[in-house]
Amino acid sequence: MANLAGTAPASALPAAWSSQPLLTIEGLTVDFSGVQVIRGIDLTVARGESIGIVGESGSGKSVTWLAALGLLPRTATVSGSIRLDGEELRGAAAMRLDRIRGGRVAMIFQDPSSALNPVIRIGRQVGEVLARHQGLSGSSIRAEAKRLFELVGLPDAGRRFDAYPHELSGGQNQRVMIATALAGKPDVLVADEPTTALDATIQAQILDLLTTVRRETGMALVLISHDLGVVSETCERIMVMYGGLVVETAPSESIFASPRHPYTQGLLAALPPFEGALRRLIPIEGQVPEPATMPPGCPFAPRCPQRMAVCEVTIPPLAQTEAGRFSACIAGPATEAQQPLKLKTSVLA
C-alpha cells in the first residue's frame, strides 16, 4: 500500500505515456483505390482515458477508427499496426475480430436510428450482445438489459425491453445504442459524432452520460467530433487531424489556451466566441484538400498564414513541443515558442 501511494504522483502526471497502453496504433495508412486518405497515424489509448479526435469533414477522423476495427470495405487497403493489449488486430481472423468488436471495443455512431434494426425490439438487440459476449440467456438477459437501460437513463427501463426503435426519440435511441455498446463490457468505447444529430439539451445529457459511464466502468473513451466545444468538455486529451494526418495532440486544458499548430489556431479563431466581446470571425481561407489532390508537403500549407517555402515540400513530423504536447509544424513552434524551446534545450544540454 505504501508502495502504491509512492507511485501515485508519478503516474498521475504522464499517465497516458508511461503506463502500458491499452490500444496502440502505429503507422496506420488507408488507401482507397490508390488514393491515400490516412497517411500514417500513431496513437495510444490508455486504460480509462478519454481522448477527443477533432477535425473537419474529410480529415480522416472516422476512417482511422473504422480501419482500426476492420470495418472498412474490401476496396480499402490498410497497413500499419493496431494492437489491443499487445494483440495485433490488423489481419486478424474474422472470428477473432467478431469477439473483440462489440466486446472489448465498442463503437457508436452519429445516427442511432440507422444503427438500430427498426423491426426488432430494442431489448432483443441489446440481448443479442449480452448472449454473444457475456454468454447470458433467458431471464438473465432481461434483467441485465433492464440494468443497462437504467444505467443509461432510459425512462421506464423495465417496459422499454419490448419497445421498437421508432417508439423512442432520437436521444433515447442513442441511449439504447450506448446500452448496447456497454453490454459487451468494453475496455474502449469509440463514439463517432454521438451527439451531432441530437438537440442541444439532449447533447448535454448524452455527453454527461458518457462521462459518468466512463468514470463508473473505467473504460476508455474515444470521442470523434467536429465540435471543439464537445471534445473540450468531455475529453482529457485532444488530437487534431487534418488531411489524413495528426497535426497536434495535447492535454485538453492547454490546447485551447495555447494552440501550437496553425490549423488548431485557425479553428479556434474561426469559432464564434460565447463569452466576452464580439469580434469579427477569422475564417481559414480556402478549403480542406481532397485526398486525390493532396499537396506534397504539409497538408495545411496552402491555407496556412505562417507558410514557408519548406512547408510546401516537406511533411513536418509530429514533434514534441513540451511535455505531453506534440505539433506537426515547421513554422509554428519556431515562431511561436522560440524562446522557451531554446531555454529547454540549453537546460537539457
Binding site: 426519440s169 433515447q172 439539451t201 448535454a204 445529457q205 454527461d208 473540450s232 468538455e233 485538453s252 460565447f274
Partner: peptide
C-alpha cells in the same frame, strides 16, 4: 437557462451544466 448552459465551449471544462430531465 438550460439551453445557454448546454452550449459546448472550447477550452471550458469544469462548470455547472444544467442537465434537463427527459426528452423534448
Amino acid at each position: 437557462k438550460a439551453l445557454v448552459s448546454a452550449v459546448p465551449v472550447a477550452g471550458r471544462r469544469t462548470r455547472e451544466r444544467i442537465i434537463l430531465k427527459g426528452e423534448p
